[in-house]
Each structure stands twice: as structure tokens, then as C-alpha cells.
Simulated assay, not measured.
Amino acid sequence: MRLAEAPPNPWFSWEYVERNAQDIARALEQHASLTFQAVVIAFVLALPLGALAHLRPRLAGPVLGVAGVLYTVPSLALFAILAPYTGIGRTTVLIGLVSYALLVLTRNVLVGLQGVDPAVRDAARGMGYGRARLLFSVELPQALPSIVAGLRLATVTTVALVTVGVVVGYGGLGQLMFRGFRSNYHAEIMTATILCLLLALVCDLVLAGVGRRITPWARVERPV
């Protein structure tokens, strides 16, 4: 008696992509929008926090300490803590993602501001720049390379963390991964994984290009 052969379970199937194109596009859009919103909100919070820590060095420790504590809380535990108060869905995931991006962005803002050449500060003060004007006109522009580097790192990290949101029913491409694991369907898992990698790569390249455009002085000329 011959045993029936198991149905094929490939790691990638274009047929699966075609049959589920709408579902995949919806998950990708959710993933990208969560990433964008989380990084923007985290940056809006991190910029003044980093500037405050720079202007008031005594606050640098507490600011980075609080952000560090939030960063070290396991994502599953954080979502479990938030869910009873913020519910199941987008809000809970967004709060968690912002919490994780905050440390990277705040630290890079602070490092960038602290790394400004003292001679540049002295020259600006000699021209009559006050503290606020010095910060906005001299220090922040000089800190842009570090800030952009923080944005790139936070964005790539957030793309990966969005998938964990599946535990509260809002994980973007993580939904496809989880569904693929439950049904042992390799193509679904691999498709979601590849899209996550591509999304992270595209975001990183875009931010790198923007960074080069807004910081032309940071480009290193190659010797002839």
C-alpha cells in the first residue's frame, strides 16, 4: 500500500503571493505606517529631551536612565502591561514602539550636541550668539550626522519590533508570520520575512540619502 505524498510546502511561492496580494499589501501598509508614526513621535520627544540634557548636564543621567529602563523592558511584557489600559490594537503597539525608539534617538541627539567642536561654539559666542541661538543655529546643524544615524538605527529596529505587535492583534507583517507558523506554511513566513527586510533596507537607504543631502559638509572627499 502506497502512502499518499505530503503536499508541497515550499519556502517561497509566487502563487501564494498572487493569491494573497491584497492581504499582503494590507499587512505591509500597516507595518510601514506603524514604523513611520512610531519613529516620528519618538523623534519629536527625543529632540527636546536630548537638547535639555545637553543644556542641563545634571539631567542627562536621569533622562537617559528613564529611557534606558523603558528600552530594557521585554516587548511582550510591555504589551501585556499596556493592554489593560490602552486596549488591544494600534495604540498599545505604538506606545511600545515609541518607548523602544526613544533611547536610541535621545542618546544620539545628546551625543551629537556634545560632539560639536568647542572652537565652533567659541566663535559663535564671539559673534554675539545667545544660548538659544547657539543651540538652534550652530549646535543642532552640527549634530545632524549623529541625529540621522540615530534615526536610521531606530527605524530599522522599529521595523523588526513591529512584528511583535501580533501578540495584541496588530503586528503588520507579523500577522502573516504568526499565521504561517500556526499552519506550518513556509511560504507565508518567508514572504513576510523578506518584506520586513526590504522595508528596513528601503527606509535605511532613504534616510541615508536624506542625511547626505542635508549634511554636505560631512562628506569625506576621496584623495585623488
Results as ranks from 00 to 15, higher is better:
residue 135 L to C: 04
residue 141 P to A: 10
residue 18 E to H: 06
residue 67 A to Y: 01
residue 54 H to T: 03
residue 7 P to V: 13
residue 89 G to E: 06
residue 141 P to Y: 05
residue 219 R to L: 12
residue 40 V to Q: 10
residue 105 L to K: 07
residue 96 G to M: 12
residue 191 T to L: 10
residue 158 T to E: 08
residue 105 L to Q: 12
residue 134 L to H: 06
residue 157 T to I: 03
residue 46 A to S: 14
residue 128 G to S: 13
residue 112 G to A: 10
residue 210 V to W: 15
residue 11 W to D: 09
residue 42 A to C: 08
residue 189 I to K: 02
residue 83 A to L: 13
residue 168 V to W: 00
residue 219 R to C: 09
residue 215 T to G: 05
residue 65 G to V: 05
residue 42 A to R: 03
residue 209 G to L: 08
residue 90 R to V: 00
residue 115 G to E: 00
residue 120 V to D: 05
residue 37 Q to M: 11
residue 49 L to D: 03
residue 151 L to M: 07
residue 125 R to D: 05
residue 207 L to E: 03
residue 32 A to Y: 05
residue 32 A to S: 07
residue 156 V to I: 14
residue 56 R to D: 00
residue 203 C to E: 02
residue 114 Q to A: 05
residue 3 L to G: 10
residue 199 L to R: 00
residue 203 C to G: 04
residue 63 V to Y: 02
residue 130 G to T: 08
residue 147 I to C: 10
residue 56 R to Q: 08
residue 103 L to K: 11
residue 184 N to M: 10
residue 118 P to C: 11
residue 30 Q to A: 05
residue 212 R to S: 06
residue 28 L to T: 13
residue 122 D to S: 14
residue 144 L to T: 12
residue 154 A to K: 08
residue 76 L to K: 06
residue 141 P to V: 12
residue 184 N to R: 11
residue 66 V to I: 08
residue 220 V to S: 10
residue 95 I to E: 05
residue 184 N to W: 07
residue 27 A to R: 06
residue 4 A to W: 04
residue 142 Q to M: 15
residue 208 A to P: 05
residue 66 V to C: 01
residue 158 T to Y: 02
residue 224 V to H: 15
residue 196 C to N: 14
residue 76 L to S: 08
residue 35 T to R: 07
residue 51 A to G: 03
residue 66 V to M: 01
residue 25 A to I: 15
residue 86 T to K: 03
residue 6 A to E: 10
residue 168 V to N: 01
residue 118 P to F: 11
residue 106 T to K: 11
residue 107 R to E: 15
residue 2 R to L: 14
residue 166 V to E: 00
residue 101 A to D: 09
residue 142 Q to I: 07
residue 149 A to P: 05
residue 192 A to I: 01
residue 173 L to H: 06
residue 93 V to M: 02
residue 174 G to Y: 00
residue 38 A to E: 01
residue 182 R to G: 10
residue 78 L to I: 02
residue 84 P to Q: 02
